[in-house]
């Protein structure tokens, strides 16, 4: 469904992605893993169109979207769920959700989806008249995922849904992501929480310094020593080495 071919991108003269290749097949859950500053968020921005590509190409459903504006890509069904802190705090929960359906004109469908989101996340229904700035971290994360669903996406891209959340809340959110995938929405989840993400996904990519270092089936990656090495072990070992010197 999503194909990323040799993508180079960055900010101004600073190149962050240096030739990323990835595929996300229809109906699957794929995860992109990496530490801070490895290029995860930059890749999401390049795919959703918030920053331009320097080189390479992004295909969605076989169509090149590299030159499209962000709102045009979104209308194709490629929806990015922003980080939790990026709900609109001065709007109510329901206003946030309605905003997610901004591009749609089918009133009945929007109401039905609103109901569906409230079924996924009952706490949002309780708080629907509340300003989203008053929600807890986990609730805001549910809100931004719900807002993404309101757009009736073919594919959702989630930016670190586990960030800064308690393990119990993370579990609840990931269970819901799994339920959403079962309804036929393709999912790309960008994460730092390696274990959780690899349990959820079928396929994983690990990015470091703007290139994909390792890729493979999630089941295999989870027990692959190279993953530990490149992601956690690597940095710990390097830090330890640096300390000793």
């Amino acid at each position: 469904m999503l194909q990323i071919n040799d993508v180079h991108a960055g900010y101004g003269n600073l190149k962050i992605l240096r030739g990323v290749n990835m595929q996300v097949p229809t109906g699957g859950i794929v995860t992109l893993l990496g530490g801070n500053g490895t290029g995860k968020s930059t890749l999401l921005k390049a795919v959703s169109g918030l920053i331009p590509l320097m080189e390479g190409e992004v295909l969605f459903d076989g169509v090149s979207i590299s030159k499209m504006k962000p709102h045009e890509r979104m209308r194709l069904g490629l929806v990015q769920v922003t980080q939790a802190k990026e709900a609109y705090p001065a709007m109510t929960v329901e206003e946030n959700l309605v905003l997610g359906a901004y591009t749609r004109r089918d009133r009945a469908g929007i109401l039905a989806d609103l109901e569906r989101v409230y079924e996924f996340f009952p706490v949002l229904r309780e708080r629907r008249k509340q300003l989203s700035g008053t929600l807890s971290g986990g609730e805001v994360q549910m809100l931004v995922i719900g807002r993404g669903l309101m757009a009736k996406p073919k594919m959702l891209m989630l930016d670190e849904p586990s960030a800064a959340l308690a393990p119990k809340v993370v579990l609840e959110i990931f269970a819901n992501i799994n339920r959403i995938a079962k309804t036929g929405v393709t999912i790309l989840v960008v994460e730092q929480n390696v274990r959780m993400a690899l349990i959820l996904a079928q396929y994983g990519y690990i990015i470091r310094d703007g290139v994909i270092m390792i890729e493979g089936e999630a089941k295999k990656l989870i027990s692959d020593p190279a993953v530990k090495e490149s992601f956690l072990g690597g940095s710990v070992a390097n830090t330890a080495k640096a300390l000793r010197n």
Partner: peptide
């Protein structure tokens, strides 16, 4: 109001 608060997120909502 969405554009006023944050243009990037407004883009991601499909707003022109």
């Amino acid at each position: 109001r969405a554009v006023a608060h944050n243009k990037d997120i407004a883009y991601l909502m499909g707003i022109n």
